[in-house]
Structure formats: structure tokens, C-alpha cells
Design a binder for these strands. Sequence first.
DNA 1: AATGACGTTATGTATAGACATAATACTCCC
DNA 2: GGGAGTATTATGTCTATACATAACGTCATT
Lengths: 232, 232
Amino acid sequence: MSRAAPTGWQAVHDEALRRIQTREWPPGALIPGEEDLAAELGCARATVNRALRELAEAGLLERRRKAGTRVTEVPSRRAQMSISRIAEEIETRGARPGYALIAADDTPMPPARRHALGIGPDTPTRHVEALHLADGAPYVHENRWISLAAMPAAASADFTTMSANEWLLRHAPFSHGTLDYSAAAAGEAASHLGCDAQTPVMVLDRATFGPETPITWVRLTYAPGFHLHMKI
Amino acid sequence: MSRAAPTGWQAVHDEALRRIQTREWPPGALIPGEEDLAAELGCARATVNRALRELAEAGLLERRRKAGTRVTEVPSRRAQMSISRIAEEIETRGARPGYALIAADDTPMPPARRHALGIGPDTPTRHVEALHLADGAPYVHENRWISLAAMPAAASADFTTMSANEWLLRHAPFSHGTLDYSAAAAGEAASHLGCDAQTPVMVLDRATFGPETPITWVRLTYAPGFHLHMKI
DNA sequence: AATGACGTTATGTATAGACATAATACTCCC
DNA sequence: GGGAGTATTATGTCTATACATAACGTCATT
């Protein structure tokens, strides 16, 4: 009941964050209960709850019923990056996006990738290969298979002007997926990216699933110089 | 007021998610207001608010005062990865973590990296070079500079048994930072990683800041075969 | 026609009170 | 002493109500 000013859950959030960062609440320490904090800061318990919940979601606090709330000993924070349209990604980097279809055919999906996506050998797929450009220069090579069981419309879709990436974002009811970044030699994509086959490049393997079914598997091979930037 | 069962914000969240995924609420559509939904689902407006707020944070809905809530046209979802102790990262991969200090000295920080971290040429730093092992094999090479202005205790810290990574996680009041993954040839780190200098490897440049001051800059060079795995 | 004031409206947030739930701490009984 | 059952307690959540705030539309004024 000492402080009068900081009402609002953000104010409570900031005040708690300050106490954590200044070690007024040291790592591992049990902090006052919601009721006490609400009384001290002059707000309702629900307000304190909202603030502390956000901090817990950020990994700075650990909350357990009955046991109370304590400051995380070794905070394992989450880094985030936004997954968006490749064209948008290129625009964000201040370049003019371009797109060129290389092939849209029925090249069979390799068994290893069928397994990664979780579809059987009989599920029909469509194969799309394309190149995305930034200011006219190769930006990323896209090599994709789409499950026609999940997206029958993909069989007749025209990928010459709209990339499969964007088409799927617009049409597929995607719910979750996995990303797998690795470093590799450019290999077969080298000719499209305008570099040597031995040049180290970033490779992204992505599997995407709808609420019920696997949708697509794609390998994106980025041109040399690509950086994956994230914030914590 | 038709449905009786789904009380609880998670139920409302799931129901809204279902309507988005089934395109009962198609992309771009304006969905019913909180008041209406609360009446329909038989719960309080605050409960609907909580559910829709979560979906908005996940990037599936866009909410604006007065304008209402609409389904995101092209959802740009966020991928998450957890940043943790390197030892923990190795354990997660099912291996026994190991650590070997290579050097702890006063090697000056290169100007480019001083700039990336945002500290002037007069700020004293400490340099630490180390190798992290997984089941005895090289896992990642760590090359780090710590600002002694932010962390004076780092000047006398012993990094022979505890890595600088872990020491900082325990002692530095870190608030935010940037991650920058790229693919590169192993180069100077090759000898430590047991590979050729030309081998493509993943490189992570990380700058870490406290609430007020820059703390540390580190380059982690991962051994060949490393994959960065994320979920959406 | 452009501009500015204002009312309307949907979301954002705060509150007090209540009940639910999980987990610890304790007690009782064997 | 050990195990089962129970009381206690801190967080989790829901409700109803209220007010705050942003933004769109409208209407009047210049």
C-alpha cells in the first residue's frame, strides 16, 4: 500500500522486471504472493496475475500453485523470428522481390522426405522448383513437394506468377510445422544461385502440417551471404 | 446462447481456431464482436477477450479498436527456439556435455564487433575462447568478448571449469539481444572442430545487452552436421 | 470540397468476488 | 516410522461491471 502511482498491468510488469533485473528479487528467490503484491502496488490481484503471467511466459518467472512464484535460476529465453512470405522477407531487407518458376511437374518425392512429412508412398504429390530474386539477383532456391491429398487444388494451380510459397500461405489451412536450418555446400542449387557447388550456404528444410494432414515439404537453399536474424 | 458446453478460455480459443481453420471464418473476414461471441458461447466477454488475444498474439487474428477483429489474410507466424545453456542444448540432443577452455586473455576486441555490440574503443574487455563437446566430440567453438564495464567480475572469473556462457547466464542481468545465424567455411575454427577449413558450418553471432549496457559479443562456430531445429 | 469536432462503437483494461485446482504440509492411524 | 487421508494455500480462471481508449463515420463549419 506504499506506492500509489503504478496502476495498470504493464506498470506492474515493468516493476517486477526491474526487481528481477536489479536482483532485488535474486534468481531462485520466492517472490511475494499475488495478494501481497496487489496490496503493495495498490491494484487488484488479477492485474498482478496478468503481469506475472507474462513474465512467466517470457521464462523469467516460474509459477506453481501452492508453491508460489520464484525467479528462474537460469532463464532459458525464447528467440523469435517471423515466418512470412518470401517476397515480404525480401522487401523487409529493402530489395525488390522477383520470382521465376523453374519447373512444376510430377517429380516423385524422395522417400526420406515422404517420411519427414509423414505421408505414405501412394499419396500423390506435386513438385515445384523455383527461384526467388532480390533486386534481380538470386535470393533463395525453392524445391517443394505438395501433398495432393491435403491440397487437391494444387494439381491445377498455376505457379508461373504466384509462388507455391505464397499460394499455400493463402490457401492451405496450416496449423503447425517444423523448421530445420543447416549449413551445407550449395551443390545442385549452385547453378541457380550463381555460385560454386562448394560454396557454404544456408539450407532450410520445412515441413508444414494442417490441422489433420501433412501439407508440404520444402527445401530452401539461400544464396551466399544470407543471414538469419532473430531477437530475444 | 446456442452452445452450452465450452466454457473456459481455452475452449473458446479452440473453437475460434477451428472456425479459422475450417474457413468458417475465412481469411480477411470480420468475426463477431466479443459481446456477441460471449453470448453465443455462453461465457463472459473477458473470457472471449483472453482467447482472441492469444490468437492475435499468435498472428492468426488482427484486432483493432472500433474496427473489430478480423482473420489475418496471410498469417505471418512466429517460429520459436529456446536459447539456453550450451550444456543443456547438448543434453537435449541426448549427448554428454563436455567443456574445454582454450584461452582466457586480453585479446583486443575487433572494431567491427565493438561496433556491433555498441561499445567504445576505451571500454575494457575480456576475451574467452573455448570448445564445447558432445560425447567427447567437438560440438561448438566459442569465441567471446565480455565488456568489463558491464561485468567487472568477469575480469577475475575462472572459466576453466564453468564456461563463460554459463557464467554469464548466471551472473549477467541480461535483458535482450540479437542472434545472427549464417553459413560459412569453418576457417580458423576448423582445427578445433576437427574438419577442413573449407567445410560449411553454421556460425552464430550473438550480442547480448543488459537493461542499460552492452554485455557480451560471441561467435559460436558449430561443428559440421549441426541443425537448428524450430517449431511453428 | 476539405477540415475539424463529436458521437458511436469495439476492443483494452481494471476491479471485486467467487470458485477451481494443484500441490504442499500436516495429522491420524496402523 | 511410514502411508493414507485431509487441511491449507497460492495460483488459475470465470463473472459482472465499469471505465478507458482508439478509430471510424457523420455532420457541421469554413
